[in-house]
């Protein structure tokens, strides 16, 4: 059985029930995935509770950290969307923090990476896709359809461009969710495989250990980067919805 194999790289993604809950025949058990979602938001609570406990003009470290994260996302949103994006800031900020902390907590050995599950990332991507589409139609009416026909394209190219644009638009939630999930899945699997090599090779294990350390640094970067990419793409899609002419 793979579960008994000490170096099964997929085992870490398995979902195990902690507290079985069934409502109307639907299984909504509290699982390890749910636990790590709770851990992720608890980490955010901790960061901001500590950061905002002693508010002062000259910030202490935790306040600095929370203000830096605030400014980072606020600037990203302002650069990508402009002032119109202010209304969506709480969502974008929460989204970034949730993905960031899920990715980072998942890097700790023996933990679970919430964002390595496609359903989670797809839920976010689908929500964003639907929200962006609705915002686009509400703000621009049918004019929102212009995004399928970029300005400056000759009319005779329209039969070619418009289907391509429609397909690329519809594939946005898939690419957005698969990008994050696949990065987490692949990264954590490779980490587990090399960790397994290190254990199994005994004395010779230092070679994969060195590789593991390097890979771990890379995965740390990817954890932050993927959270950033997910958030900035959300901002870009939001900008497309608010300004379809651009």
């Amino acid at each position: 059985m793979a579960a008994d194999n000490p170096i099964d790289p997929i085992h870490q993604f398995e979902i195990s029930k902690i507290a079985p809950i069934q409502i109307g025949g639907v299984d909504i058990s509290f699982t390890n995935s749910s636990l790590f979602m709770v851990f992720a938001i608890s980490a955010v609570f901790l960061l901001f509770t500590l950061g905002l406990s002693k508010k002062s003009i000259i910030p202490n470290r935790m306040q600095m950290l929370s203000e830096m994260s605030y400014n980072f996302i606020a600037n990203m949103l302002r650069d990508q969307v402009g002032d119109q994006g202010r209304a969506y800031f709480p969502f974008i900020f929460s989204l970034f923090l949730f993905i960031f902390f899920c990715n980072f907590i998942g890097l700790i050995p023996y933990t679970f990476t919430v964002t390595s599950h496609l359903i989670v990332t797809f839920a976010f991507a689908a929500l964003i896709f639907l929200a962006v589409t609705i915002i686009g139609f509400v703000k621009n009416g049918l004019g929102y359809l212009r995004i399928f026909y970029p300005s400056g394209i000759p009319v005779y190219l329209a039969p070619l461009i418009v289907p391509i644009e429609i397909i690329s638009y519809l594939s946005k939630p898939i690419s957005l969710s698969v990008r994050l999930c696949a990065n987490m899945l692949a990264g954590h699997s490779i980490l587990k495989i090399f960790a397994g090599f290190t254990v199994m090779l005994g004395f010779l294990g230092f070679a994969p250990l060195v590789f593991l350390v390097v890979l771990y640094a890379l995965e740390t970067l990817i954890a932050a980067l993927q959270a950033y990419i997910f958030t900035i793409l959300t901002c870009i899609y939001l900008n497309d919805a608010l300004h379809p002419d651009h």
């Binding site: 979902i15 809950i21 639907v26 299984d27 909504i28 058990s29 509290f30 699982t31 995935s33 749910s34 979602m37 709770v38 992720a40 938001i41 955010v44 609570f45 901001f48 709480p90 969502f91 900020f93 929460s94 923090l97 949730f98 919430v114 599950h117 359903i119 989670v120 839920a123």
Partner: peptide, 21 residues
């Protein structure tokens, strides 16, 4: 596992969203 994941995702993210906003 999807219903459980989605349910807890919605719950935790909503709590986070409310806390943040």
């Amino acid at each position: 596992t999807f219903p459980s994941q989605l349910f807890w995702l919605v719950v935790t993210f909503l709590i986070l969203y409310v806390f943040m906003s």
